[in-house]
Write a protein that binds this DNA or RNA. Sequence first.
RNA 1: GUGGGUGUAGCUCAGCUGGUAGAGCGCUGGAUUGUGGUUCCAGUGGCCGAGGGUUCGAAUCCCUCCACCCACCCCA
Length: 419
Amino acid sequence: MVFPTTLIKAVKGTRDLLPPFTENWNAVEREARAVFRAYNYGEIRTPILEETQLFARGVGADTDIVNKEMYTFDDRDGSSLTLRPENTASVIRAYIEHRLDQRPGVQKLYYIGPMFRRERPQAGRYRQFYQIGAEAIGSESPAVDAEVIEMVIEILGRAGLTGFELLINSVGDHNCRPQYVEKLRTALEPVAASLCGDCQRRAVTNPLRVLDCKVEADQPIIDKLPNILDHLCDACRTHFDAVKRHLDDRGLEYTVRPRMVRGLDYYMRTTFEVVHGGLGAQNSVLGGGRYDGLAESLGSKVHSPGIGFSIGEDRLVMSVAARESSALDLCIAPLGEPALRHAALLARDLRRGGASVEIAEGKLKRILELANKLGARFTLIVGDNEINAGRYALKEMATGRQEEVTRDEIAPKLGAARN
RNA sequence: GUGGGUGUAGCUCAGCUGGUAGAGCGCUGGAUUGUGGUUCCAGUGGCCGAGGGUUCGAAUCCCUCCACCCACCCCA
C-alpha cells in the first residue's frame, strides 16, 4: 500500500482492541459486574477529564504520576485539565460533590474504564490502559477491608485467573507513618552509600521506595532496615490485626509483605496487591488500599474514610485463557436478487429471535466457502425453488448433512444444535 | 527520561562474507450447471522503516533519524 501522506497510526502506548479478542474483555467485565452486583456495588461513571488540581491534591503532588506521567493540557480558557491517571480521586470528588455521604449506608461504587499515563510503554503497560475498580466509602471497619479483598479475589477467580498471590501490608496512618519514615531515613544515612545508585537517590527523595528495590546486592542491607509493622501505632496495629483475622475467617490465603509500598500518597493502613507470573516485569494485576484522609484533602468537611482497589484490566485479560469466540449460527445463501430480498426478511426475523445470522451474496460455492471460514454452524440455501416450495435447504456445516425445512422450523433447528 | 533489541508481502519469517527479493500461511480465481472443509493448478501481493553516505552496483557495509518491542525509573 502506498499512501500519499504519512500513514496515521494509533498514538504511542495506545492500541486497538479487535474482534474476536474483545470477547475476552467483555467476558472479564461481565464477570466483574456480576460480582459487584452480588456485593451491592453500583456503577459510577466519572468524566475522563478532570481539573489537574484534583490529581495533584489527591494522588500527591510529589509523586511521579503527577510530576511526569500525566496527560495535562491547557483548555481554551486557560484552565489546566488532565486525562485521569487513576479513578479514585474522581470518585471521591463525585462523592463529595453529590453529597453521597448523606445516602444511607456505606457507599459502594465500581467503575470500568480507560485511564491515561504518559509512560514509556512496555509489556502490560500502556498509555491508555483500562481499570476495573471499586471503592467502599464511609467506613473504617476492618471487616469492610476484608470484604473488599474477598470481592476482588472473587472477580479474579470468576474471570478465570489462577496461580496468583495476594499480598497485604499496613502502611500506617498520619500518626505513625511520618515517624516511621523518619526512622527509616535515619537508618538509611549510614548505609546509603553502599546501596545502588537508584536507592541512594530514593534514600533522600522517597525512603519508602528503597524497600521496593530489586537489586540483589542491596537486599541484606534492606532486610536490616526498620520494619513498618513494628512501628504501627496502636490504632493501626489493632486495625491490621482485625483485617487479617477477617481474612482468616474467610479462608483467604495471603502473604504479609511489610516491604510492599504504594505509589500513591493517599494510602493509609491497609494496602494490598495481587501478583501473577507470566506478565513480564509487570507482575502486578491489581493494587488497592485504604485512604481515610483523601476526602478531607480534597476539601470535604465530612470525614469519609474509604478503601478501594483497581484491577489492571489489560493485564488480567492477558493472563486469562482466551475464550472461544461465539460461533455464527447461520449463514444465508440467497441465489439471485428476488432470493436476496426474501432472505433479508428471513434474516431479520431470525435475528429478532436471538440468532446470529449473516447473509452472503455471490455464487453458492463462494458462500459455502465463506460460511466455512466464518465458522457458521448452518447454511440456509434460498433459491427460487425454495421460495416457491416454501421449503429451504438447511445444511449443517460440521457434518455436511442437509435437510429440507419450512420457515418455522429454522429457528428451532438453530437453537437445538446450539449446545 | 535512560539502556538494549528489532524493522523485508496482510501475518510469521528466510535472504551467509554487497549483484536492484523468496518461502509458508492468508487473500483471489480455476478443476463446466445450485454445495464448503482435504487436494491440485494459477494469480495477487514488497520504494526491503525513512533520509544520507561508500560503491560500477546496497535489503546486505557506514552515519543520522523514526517506529515498534523489552527492560530501567515509576507503577495497576
